[in-house]
Computed example of a mutant assay.
Amino acid sequence: MRTHYCGELNSGLIGQEVILCGWVHRRRDHGGVIFIDLRDREGLIQVVLDPDRAEVFALAEQARSEYVLRIEGRVRPRPEGTVNKDLPTGEVEVLGTGLTILNAAETPPFQLDTHSADTSEEVRLRYRYVDLRRPEMQERLRVRSRVTRVMRNFLDDHGFLDIETPILTKSTPEGARDYLVPSRTHPGEFFALPQSPQLFKQLLMMSGMDRYYQVARCFRDEDLRADRQPEFTQLDIEVSFMTEDALTGLMEEMIRRLFKEVLDTDLPNPFPRLTYAEAMRRFGSDKPDLRVPLELIDVGDLMVDVDFKVFSGPAQDPKGRVVALCLPKGGDLTRREIDEYTKFVGIYGAKGLA
């Protein structure tokens, strides 16, 4: 059906006959010569169709955006001055000698070569199959695939077994509500979808499967929030006969390899470590984002004798705390913005803000 992906063509293939399949990303008619940018998951290639081959040219005239084509042709260098340095395949083009329209297409609901922010999310989700054709969306799927592959390879190399656990199970007392699935064979009874494979991991450890992992699907019947969603995927791991430090070191090594192989980013060895007490004292959170340089500074000793009881009270209380956050350009905040931040920090237990 095809010999190459569009994005694979380069100067090393000049002179070769190729067969390509893909979508019409863009079509241009330049004075009797038709140019088609053909797109597949690996990228774009420019296809040139001359009127010398009347039948092929007539089909090319019918092609429109998002038509699915099969094109036969010969790879050749682009004419001098027309090389596209922004395109990996920009040094070559394909002179089309055969064309088949595999599928016609209606006019797309939005342009695929525009930024996703220019199209409403509602429209993108309604036409998800079109949205997923965007290069940025396809790259995200490729990154996810590479992440999963690197993790699997690393864990396989370190003696972990990839074991699949059941999806239909019993309800377990965890942090959120379970999704329930009615049983046809047992009227009035229900299966629960697992929030995580916790029970099965423990069974596997007791059974002697001392290193287990699974890229597991998890389900939680709760309202959508910034850090919660109804279903998600997590890397699930359980081990026996391993110390906490050994397991932590192994996971750090896996994350370092993951960032290096997927993003070509070097992470420190070892990772920086904070005690719970230090994290709470400096950031007020047990999972601080260390990319944010803002830290809490204790000023209780300065507030003990002030007349403002809102500050002096907590400063004198052994369980109280008064801290300052040095905010760049904080002096530019309006009173309204400060009041909104005061409401916001109340969500996390702060008694006040000034």
Rank of each mutant, 00 (worst) to 15 (best):
P173F: 07
C21A: 15
L302D: 02
V33Y: 05
P135N: 15
K351E: 12
R78I: 14
D37F: 01
F200A: 00
L250Q: 10
S171W: 02
G300F: 00
L199Q: 15
N10E: 10
G73L: 00
E244F: 05
H4S: 02
D223N: 06
R291H: 07
Y348C: 09
L161S: 09
Q234M: 02
K260A: 10
A60L: 14
K319P: 01
Y127K: 05
G15C: 02
I36E: 11
Y348P: 08
K329G: 07
A216K: 09
I297T: 03
H30G: 09
E136S: 15
R140E: 12
S207A: 09
R273H: 00
A54N: 10
R39V: 01
R291F: 06
G31S: 12
G284A: 07
E136F: 03
D221C: 03
F219T: 10
R41S: 08
I347L: 13
Y67V: 13
D50L: 15
K351W: 05
C21V: 15
R126S: 03
H4R: 04
D307Q: 14
P135Y: 11
G331S: 06
L161E: 03
N10I: 03
P270V: 03
N10F: 05
A277M: 05
V47M: 06
R142A: 12
T342S: 11
G7E: 07
G22D: 07
G98R: 10
T89K: 02
P318K: 05
L168N: 03
E91W: 06
D162M: 06
D50M: 11
V150A: 02
E61Q: 07
P135V: 12
T148M: 13
Q46T: 04
E244V: 09
C218I: 05
K351N: 11
D332S: 09
T100D: 04
V143K: 10
R126N: 00
E61F: 02
A58D: 09
R124N: 04
L274E: 14
A324Q: 14
H115E: 10
E222R: 04
P328V: 07
I14D: 09
R257D: 12
R76L: 14
M137F: 01
G249P: 01
A246Q: 09
Q316E: 09
E189K: 15
L290A: 01
P270N: 14
K201I: 01
D266N: 15
L20H: 09
R78Q: 05
M205C: 01
L141I: 13
E106L: 13
R74W: 03
S312F: 07
T185S: 06
R335G: 15
R134I: 08
P318T: 08
E222S: 01
S196V: 06
R126Y: 00
L224Y: 08
G15H: 00
P268L: 03
V75H: 00
F110V: 07
L38H: 13
R124F: 08
Q138K: 13
L125W: 09
Y348T: 15
A104F: 12
R321Q: 10
A104M: 14
N103S: 02
V306P: 11
G12M: 01
A246W: 00
R128C: 08
T169P: 13
D37Y: 10
D210C: 13
H30N: 11
P79Y: 01
D289I: 12
